[in-house]
Design a protein around this nucleic acid. Structure first.
Lengths: 247, 247
DNA sequence: CGAATGCTTGAGGACCATCAACCCCTGTGG
DNA sequence: CCACAGGGGTTGATGGTCCTCAAGCATTCG
């Protein structure tokens, strides 16, 4: 058992510890989870909508999204997932969900059996609370997206998404909030914020001309964090992270 | 301990058992939760945004809503709560949330201490999973709202809300899906679906003229359930209830 | 080098917001 | 009993934000 844990499990553990205190034994239990890696190429669905699963998907590298499908085929993205995110941890308690999960880039995913996750919960009840707390943070983000899509104008919606991803990427230790890779097409951004790709394009141009943020070639360069958060009305408290070392 | 449980606790238990199997002992633990009732009059905030709480709020009677407040003061409602709903059960693991909770009508609320809820979890770890599952259902509804607000047109958005409330009210045993009390103003509906009160009014007129549903005097009369679910593109699976006795 | 995908920009139009007026109902106080 | 105020519902006119359609350009990949 001295085998080193998969780095993605360490990322997942770090994500849990952003919000929960875990004992050494609990940490070890998470790191010793049995994981089956699979490779998924860009634009492939990992979980089809409405399917029942007996495992959760931990992103080891790449980007994934949760989506809801309309009758006419258009998709609404309801969450983005980056390395270290367990994108359907809640499926442990709700194995049949209405949504699907798609890989946005070539992605490495670790499949972790529900039975294994339940095993850690049985051994360490505190882990159930940690898992629950983790999915609660996701739910808090969902609520914020509703407010963003329902009440903010197009420019603020796009700016808000850029801010959220900046903080999440920084806290995941993947890069800095002022310069990070955004592996999304403008159409995928549009599907997340409830706009069309054409209009997202114009809003990105606005943000660039305003000197807030420049998005080019799948890379975000934040020119003025203060101004960007201002136009987004962004307050990171909703992500329920501790150590929100602002600035 | 033969004291009969508060009826709201029985409703809450029934809600849990819509989604989880609980042993007799676990059920008894839920019913014996200590609760402090308070009366809140319409339009009062129960929990202010950003406040830290050490209790959860169980709705005994009336309607409440979770809301997010914008900078300019306008509100976005992110969830409705009816009798039997524990409107911030997740606060057990995340006591500081960004949102607020407001009473929409005169409402009776039972305050249940987090320590009491944690006590039941310590005694019956399976209850942690039941609570987690319950909040997961809320999160699933949030995700559906994002899709609804982001991608559906105004008429479908309003119709979808009417469908969702119909099913929830029916499953809570409060009344039937085809005729129920809707204790919301058109402005509150607008705050939930991301429209203005004026446009909600027009959409309700559309639904009435189409023969789908008539909303008057805080009462919904469903004229044609099939047609209503059709214009809403409503599929109740996302609510994660079992026994979805359709029709 | 052709095909596919994504980005960019323009022109016109639809949907929904805004503003405004009027109605109804309820409660309050003279 | 009536006057009045306030909240909510209803409808019309006007306008803005964002969608739709379309075309051109850049980049990547076979």
């Amino acid at each position: 058992m001295i085998a080193p844990a998969h780095p993605a499990l360490e990322r997942f553990l770090a994500r849990l510890m952003l919000r929960s205190n875990l004992s050494a034994a609990e940490q070890a239990a998470v790191l010793s989870l049995n994981a089956q890696p699979i490779e998924v190429s860009a634009r492939r669905d990992v979980v089809m909508p409405g399917r029942t699963v007996d495992y959760s998907c931990l992103i080891a590298s790449g980007w994934a999204a949760r989506f809801d499908q309309m009758r006419d085929g258009q998709r609404q993205i309801t969450a983005f997932y980056i390395a270290g995110d367990m994108c359907d941890l809640h499926s442990v308690v709700a194995p049949t969900a209405g949504w699907g999960i798609a890989a946005l880039t070539d992605t490495t995913i670790l499949k972790i059996a529900h039975s294994a996750l339940r095993g850690t919960v049985d051994a360490f009840p505190n882990l159930a609370l940690a898992y629950w707390r983790d999915t609660t943070a996701d739910a808090s983000i969902l609520a914020k997206w509703i407010a963003n899509i329902g009440r903010a104008d197009a420019e603020a919606r796009v700016a808000h998404l850029l801010c959220e991803l900046a903080i999440r990427i920084e806290h995941a230790g993947l890069s800095s909030r002022t310069a990070y890779a955004l592996r999304l097409t403008q159409e995928q951004i549009a599907d997340a914020v409830g706009l069309t790709a054409v209009h997202v394009n114009r809003m990105l141009r606005n943000l660039r001309h305003a000197g807030s943020a420049a998005v080019q070639n799948h890379a975000v360069e934040v020119l003025d964090w203060q101004r960007l958060t201002d136009t987004a009305a962004f307050d990171p408290a909703y992500m329920l992270m501790r150590q929100l070392s602002d600035r």
